[in-house]
Computed example of a mutant assay.
Amino acid sequence: MSKLTEDEIQKKLLRFPEWHYQDNAIHAEFEFDNFKDCFSAMSRIAFDCETLNHHPNWSNTYNVLNISLTTHDAGGVTHKDFKLAEAIDAIVIPEEDA
């Protein structure tokens, strides 16, 4: 999988308002009502990560989940990162709106 140019990344980010590009990766921060909801979302995301064979750099502090996506083998952001970001948004964003 080939690395996307910065212009390609910025164009794709128009469909991902929660995400931004910085330091050769796309990043998002999601806030939940509590730790349990945050950890639950992380558990559900983990299943998609395994399915896509692509794993984020992520951390959580209490109710906040920080995620960074980059394709290490390609040396930057690829279509694979956006595919995982789409799967993450499908899990996380409906919970935020609830």
Rank of each mutant, 00 (worst) to 15 (best):
A74N: 00
I88R: 06
L84N: 02
E86C: 07
N34Q: 08
P94C: 05
K80L: 11
G75K: 09
Y62D: 00
S40C: 08
T70M: 00
F82W: 14
E29W: 04
E86G: 09
I91C: 08
A41N: 10
L52A: 02
F30H: 02
D81L: 07
W58L: 15
A41K: 09
G75D: 07
H54M: 02
D81E: 15
D48F: 10
F39D: 14
N34F: 15
P56A: 04
M42Q: 10
K80Q: 08
H55A: 12
A74H: 00
A74E: 13
D89L: 07
F82E: 04
D81M: 04
T78S: 12
T51A: 09
H72V: 10
F39N: 13
N57G: 07
C38Q: 04
I67A: 08
C38N: 04
F82A: 11
E29C: 12
F82P: 06
E29F: 10
M42Y: 13
K36Q: 05
G75I: 02
K36D: 15
F47M: 13
D33W: 11
I45D: 09
P56F: 01
I88M: 10
T71Y: 02
N57K: 06
N34H: 13
L52D: 00
S59Y: 15
D37C: 12
F32R: 01
N53H: 03
N34E: 12
E31S: 13
F82L: 09
D37G: 14
Y62F: 15
E86V: 10
A46V: 04
I93Q: 01
F47L: 12
V77M: 07
F35H: 14
D81Y: 11
S68F: 02
K80P: 07
D33A: 14
N66R: 15
F47T: 09
S43G: 13
D73R: 05
D33P: 09
F30G: 06
L69E: 01
G75E: 05
